[in-house]
């Protein structure tokens, strides 16, 4: 029965990674850049939710929407101020800038909220469900996280395959120049992508801190790196890939902690990543890019 318990917990933490990975993968697909500050947007989202509930007395559910709104604006500002001026320059310059933005956000958070960890109150109030005479416990957080990620996945799938803006995003991701020749404003599309990715990061931040309640300025960095790994694992640029990669990563991590070694769980996760990339360089669901002649 403990196997099933680990599996469910693994899927739950994996679902959080998946939501974060969606932000990485969408931005990569459309702007062709790795936004290493994405993990820190999660942390900002969690702090906003925390502040809204603890200092302003806002109900927990409403605080999520406030966090999403703040992170959406933050994402658009980051893209406009830090990345947009570098469009067309070397990808290394953009990468270094992203790392700079990451440190900026962490230090700004430390300035505003201090370095002492905050104790995040879970947004979920329902009691855990006990099954098989108490052998299997499913917490409300686990259910909410899995449901939220499934809803997000379906909504994103609908958005990118059925709506005009979503299709335009796919067009930009496939061929930026051709998309411009259709009349698609590439800058606005990239900005929209950052907005969506950052709103998802806010949700991920609240879900993450509801499960792991310690909130500090570096809260986003490790989940951010794991989610980035998940995005690469699933095939960067692919939305279903990010989802699959995130969940597999969460499950592998939880099983490693449970059965092998809790200290080496990250090492094991990255070992699996290396093996997958050796066998399938484009990731599990990534498309092998063919050079056209």
């Amino acid at each position: 029965m403990s196997f099933l318990q680990y599996l469910i917990n693994g899927i739950s933490i994996g679902a959080v990674y998946a939501i974060i990975a969606l932000g990485y993968t969408m931005v990569y697909g459309i702007a062709k850049m790795l936004n290493f500050a994405h993990g820190d947007v999660i942390m900002v989202g969690a702090y906003i939710s925390f502040s809204a509930t603890n200092y302003l007395g806002v109900p927990a559910v409403l605080s999520i929407f406030i966090a999403m709104a703040v992170c959406t604006i933050l994402g658009i500002i980051i893209e406009g101020l830090a990345y947009k001026p570098l469009r067309g320059t070397s990808s290394l310059a953009v990468l270094i800038t992203a790392i700079g933005v990451s440190y900026f956000l962490q230090n700004a958070a430390q300035l505003i909220w201090g370095a002492t960890p905050k104790n995040f109150t879970s947004i979920v109030t329902s009691a855990p469900i006990s099954l098989f005479g108490g052998q299997l416990t499913i917490t409300g957080e686990v259910i909410i996280t899995i449901v939220a990620s499934a809803v997000i996945m379906l909504a994103l799938h609908f958005f990118t395959t059925k709506t005009k803006i979503g299709k335009a995003m796919r067009a930009v991701s496939e061929d930026r120049d051709a998309a411009q020749l259709m009349g698609i404003n590439v800058n606005r599309t990239i900005s929209t992508t950052f907005a969506i990715g950052s709103a998802l990061a806010a949700i991920a931040g609240v879900l993450l801190c509801s499960t792991v309640p310690t909130l500090q300025p570096t809260t986003g960095s490790m989940p951010g790196i794991r989610a980035f790994t998940a995005a690469v694992f699933g095939g960067i640029g692919s939305i279903p890939g990010a989802m699959l990669g995130g969940i597999l990563l969460g499950v592998i991590e939880t099983f490693s902690k449970a059965y092998l070694s809790s200290q080496f769980s990250d090492a094991i996760v990255f070992l699996v990543l290396i093996i997958v990339l050796l066998v399938k360089p484009a990731g599990l669901l990534g498309k092998q890019v063919q050079e056209k002649v």
């Binding site: 005009k164 299709k167 335009a168 796919r170 067009a171 496939e174 061929d175 120049d177 051709a178 998309a179 020749l181 259709m182 009349g183 698609i184 498309k287 056209k292």
Partner: peptide
């Protein structure tokens, strides 16, 4: 453009819809 540059991963219909983006 040269080399056609259609959206290879999208359907024919979606390509036409992108043409009507404006």
């Amino acid at each position: 453009p040269e080399g056609r540059r259609i959206f290879l991963q999208m359907t024919v219909q979606d390509n036409l819809e992108m043409g009507a983006f404006t």
